[in-house]
């Protein structure tokens, strides 16, 4: 079934709860660790940590949770930390993930602002940040490509079409996110409903 790949049952995660689910401290440190290296975007680091390194989730589970996070209001990465933390440990898990994600970068940004008058004078810092931004865009590009791999299977043509339409709408036509949500998502969900039957 085309949609089987995206229907990966939550029971995988729930069954693993008792044995190898991460502790609150591991969740907080995991999200804290990706937050302090997340220059130009934390989401690629989140996928790397959650899927590739710690294997707390499968690639399709990550795509599903990111989808949910994107369609909720608020910063995507904060929503993702809530969704993932909640799943492992309920309210304490969500709190641990969000505090881990937000606390360390808050300290760093306040420190940077405190010494800003000093490094503002150094033009090289500004030039360096431009180089970092270009590399960060590449990191996000690679992560998007990894997530898109399942869409290129022969039985996922329809999903690939919806992904491409969304991409073109935002990247080329410059449509805003709410417009995309209202225009494309209902049609995509309607087709999914029809296929799941």
């Amino acid at each position: 079934m085309a949609y089987a790949a995206f229907m990966s049952s939550r029971s995988d995660v729930l069954d693993s709860r008792s044995s190898d689910r991460p502790s609150l401290m591991q969740i907080a440190l995991g999200f804290g660790g990706i937050a302090i290296v997340g220059f130009g975007g934390v989401l690629p680091w989140a996928r790397r940590m959650l899927v590739e390194q710690r294997r707390w989730m499968t690639p399709s589970q990550f795509s599903e949770d990111l989808a949910l996070s994107q369609f909720l209001p608020g910063p995507n990465i904060v929503n993702l930390s809530i969704v993932v933390g909640q799943r492992f440990h309920g309210l304490p898990g969500a709190a641990a993930a969000a505090i881990g994600l937000l606390g360390p970068p808050m300290l760093i940004v306040i420190l940077l602002a405190s010494i800003y008058g000093y490094w503002n004078e150094i033009a090289a810092v500004h030039d360096a940040m431009r180089g970092v931004a270009s590399a960060a865009a590449g990191l996000i590009l690679a992560t998007a490509a990894k997530m898109a791999v399942p869409l290129f299977r022969a039985d996922a043509r329809l999903q690939l079409a919806f992904a491409i339409i969304t991409f073109l709408g935002v990247a080329v036509l410059g449509a805003s996110l709410p417009v995309v949500l209202l225009a494309i998502a209902p049609v995509s969900v309607a087709f999914a409903w029809w296929r799941v039957r």
């Binding site: 229907m7 795509s63 599903e64 865009a137 997530m147 969304t166 969900v189």
Partner: peptide
């Protein structure tokens, strides 16, 4: 069905954000 329908849109959105960031940077 909702999840299956949202995932491709989410991947399209994420790819677009990579594209937009690269265009600016």
């Amino acid at each position: 069905a909702t999840q299956s329908g949202l995932v491709p849109v989410a991947i399209g959105l994420f790819s677009a954000s990579a594209f937009v960031l690269a265009r600016h940077a």
